[in-house]
Design a protein around this nucleic acid. Structure first.
Lengths: 210, 210
DNA sequence: ACGCTTATTGGCGGCTTGTCAACAGCGTGA
DNA sequence: TCACGCTGTTGACAAGCCGCCAATAAGCGT
């Protein structure tokens, strides 16, 4: 990951396309912020690992915080192709598939995920909150797509609201697994699948009626 | 909140009991961290607002981070709704009853409840997440009592873990209802009941059916 | 009134981040 | 081929932050 300065003839600096350099720094930031939390990752280290001058980070992202926010954005917004890949099979298959993918993603970004699911709304960063709230809404919509429930008209808004809540619980559950170790990955998978299934089912046939 | 240095005769420094000074700083920290997020509140400001030397903060709390965590602890362990034992009838009846009771309680303590669940639940600090999770543990134990499930031995820890997660979702759901208005009270009741039922069921089924 | 315990201070050292003028790849036109 | 210029890139600078610690003095016990 560090820039090549050892081989003899290379120019001391290499000039990259802005997008390319940006992506390179971003990739490095994704890795470091994934391993450690915000404060303990310095821009100095970020620059060194990227093989770049520290000032360049500010040039591209303005601020360490903005770089961080950009990393979060990349992490929480699910790319389109992933959705398409899951949008077939029975409802249960699609539920299972999307849960599995979800677990894979957060497993790969362990530290960063743990950093994102905390604090219960106190002393929180509004910028981060905005991104995550937007991402939750986005996730809820994609869930509707993935589960093939975009057609339903009755109770659609309610289902979206429930899915937002489901997301909250999903975060909590992964915390029990990765932070406290009180649940296994398999148990997490189970509870997420069955809960999601029961939420979807209730839209069609409520069981605890008045 | 700032210390009195203007009135003539007061000694330039005042000597307080450790507990008293600690509480004073803590109160100030509670306010500042409540207004802004962690990084944008400096110990310098914290000290100035407390009318105290900056070093004193480190003396009492060791670290800015530890002070922050202490503030979170204070906030989070306040909520304490008395939950009565409702352990009779079928499991579903007990579930429904406890949920109804839960909704009544938070309806009666609307303002306090909204203050507690705050504006969402996003953040980025694993340590804080740990503290909050610990606070939810009490609630989970009360639930076990209320549902009359204290007797079971197998999968007890897993059930407690799941109830903690359920708890966070309950917060989120009530937020959708009372804060955002995207769900009705009846829908909240439904989703809480069915989700809780499916969680409990998942614990029981492996025991009986296998 | 005096001394002693200890709460409190203030400044030092090291580290952090954002800015900015200067530097130098590298494509371009002659 | 070579000089030129655009702009990606650098390195140093200033301000600020945090943890530490020796020095200071508040106020109680005697």
């Amino acid at each position: 990951m560090t820039a090549d300065t050892s081989t003899a003839a290379g120019p001391r600096r290499r000039r990259l396309e802005p997008d390319e350099r940006r992506a390179q720094i971003l990739a490095c930031a994704r890795r470091l912020f994934g391993e450690r939390n915000y404060e303990s990752v310095s821009t100095t280290e970020l620059a060194r690992e990227s093989g770049v001058a520290r000032g360049l980070i500010n040039h591209y992202f303005g601020t360490k915080r903005e770089l961080y926010l950009e990393v979060i954005r990349q992490l929480v917004f699910i790319p389109d192709f992933a959705v398409e890949r899951l949008a077939h099979g029975t409802l249960e298959q699609r539920i299972t598939a999307s849960i599995d993918r979800f677990l894979e993603v957060i497993e790969r970004n362990r530290k960063m995920w743990l950093g994102m699911i905390g604090t219960g709304g106190y002393g929180r960063d509004p910028d981060v909150a905005a991104i995550l709230a937007e991402a939750d809404a986005d996730t809820a919509d994609r869930m509707l797509e993935t589960l093939g429930l975009t057609e339903i008209s009755e109770g659609r808004e309610e289902l979206r609201a429930m899915l937002r809540c489901y997301n909250t619980m999903a975060k909590s559950v992964t915390g029990e697994w990765m932070l406290r170790g009180t649940l296994t990955r398999e148990q997490v998978r189970t509870i997420l699948c069955t809960t999601l299934a029961s939420i979807v089912r209730d839209v069609h046939e409520p069981m605890f009626g008045g």
